[in-house]
Design a protein around this nucleic acid. Structure first.
Lengths: 131, 131, 131, 131
DNA sequence: GTGGTCTAGACCACG
DNA sequence: GTGGTCTAGACCACA
């Protein structure tokens, strides 16, 4: 697996795991219908608690990114991704507002902030070839 | 004060307060040297505990946004803001990466994401005072 | 634990605690990656409030001396210590200047002051564990 | 006067004032019997409260650095300075220990720390010609 | 009046 | 179990 966790981070492990899986889907490393490791295996691989993996998978299932089959286990949702919901739009704006405000106060221009966003978006989509 | 808190939010109150003050500085509503309410007054105004306000003020002081002036109380740092530190750059990229990945997965294009960032940045530095 | 607090001192308890932990690291009694007691346990051991311990731990975390490892609790930072920052250099000079001035006025020679510094430095890094 | 206060510092103003006067004596700028401004005048010059200056003067009088005459006002003690008391020795060691420990942890060698002390002592005694 | 410190007790998220 | 957050109420140093 391509997942790297930072156990010192203040970001909860389950949230890091969610992020990494979403990034895996964004980069194309994980495609529709692709299988994910079982809860037990992934927990063992990463050296973390079963409950933690379970929480991440459940969140991703609720959001519509993953599907849980009885026997096939966990797979990336085969029918496509959820789309831009109101909830996501709200979250996006809220977090961007916080970042933009601090960036502006620290002297980052609109152009610099915008280009940073663009650059990160591109990296996220493409920068996964090493895995 | 212009501060609005969501006491039900999962975002800690002190963090919301930090964000709102930074946004106040970004929008120009708070200028260099401007005084902020005392911890007690702001706490009373917002209906929260003074320690919560204190925590926010202290974080902003550490970051270099605020100064605690003996006698004058807490003021916006008069000598300019901290600038884009490595720590901020790292935080910015980390959070943008997470947002960009989810945006991409949900079908948001690079252009849409970039323009959203630009738009939010603009709103942040202008959309105050008119409300 | 090796920590001794003077609850009557005008030096805040949390600051004494910070000092003692740093001295513990300096003396080698605390090594990289070593675990520290939980805030609750240490607070109980020392007969102080857990928030006071928490404040000390947080300060040391910010400075880069400690790490909060998810699950392992608080540990001495395993990747080495922060190094001589500008902030520390400034603090060092400011405090030394004050001490040196009073020492000089009281008739302490440069040699005496310098040797006192050397002697204290040596004691600090060796005078533990044997006690 | 040669006194510069930092109203943003976490060091109390009265303590800064004490330090500066002691440094003035150490550097020779203030000699035995030299007059100091009246409480009222110095407070006005520095733009601080009467009580603050008073507190500083009283502390310096208690320590034996200053003398207060009925009519002549405040002067540097004409009969020489107090000498190295036990109390000062204790304070010196306590503060040096704290500084030395942090210096050691940050990788400063004994030689570097010792030379820093020597250098600061020298500056304190001589570096006052500009006033 | 201010901010700084300390205590006490509570709930929560995390793992 | 852990640390993180919040509340409540208290005392103190400072100016």
């Amino acid at each position: 697996m391509f997942i790297e966790l930072d156990l010192q981070s203040e970001t909860p492990i389950y949230a890091q795991l969610v992020d990494q899986i979403v990034e895996g889907i964004a980069s194309g490393e994980l495609k529709r219908g692709d299988p994910l490791p079982s809860v037990r295996r992934l927990a063992e691989e990463l050296g973390i608690n079963l409950h933690t993996v379970n929480k991440s998978y459940n969140l991703l299932k609720q959001e519509g990114f993953l599907q849980v089959h009885r026997k096939q286990g966990v797979i990336v949702h085969p029918d496509g991704m959820p789309g831009v919901t109101e909830a996501f739009e709200a979250k996006l704006q809220r977090q961007l507002r916080s970042l933009a405000a601090e960036a502006a106060v620290r002297g980052m221009t609109e152009e610099a902030f915008t280009e940073e966003s663009r650059s990160v978006y591109r990296d996220t989509i493409t920068n996964r070839g090493g895995g």
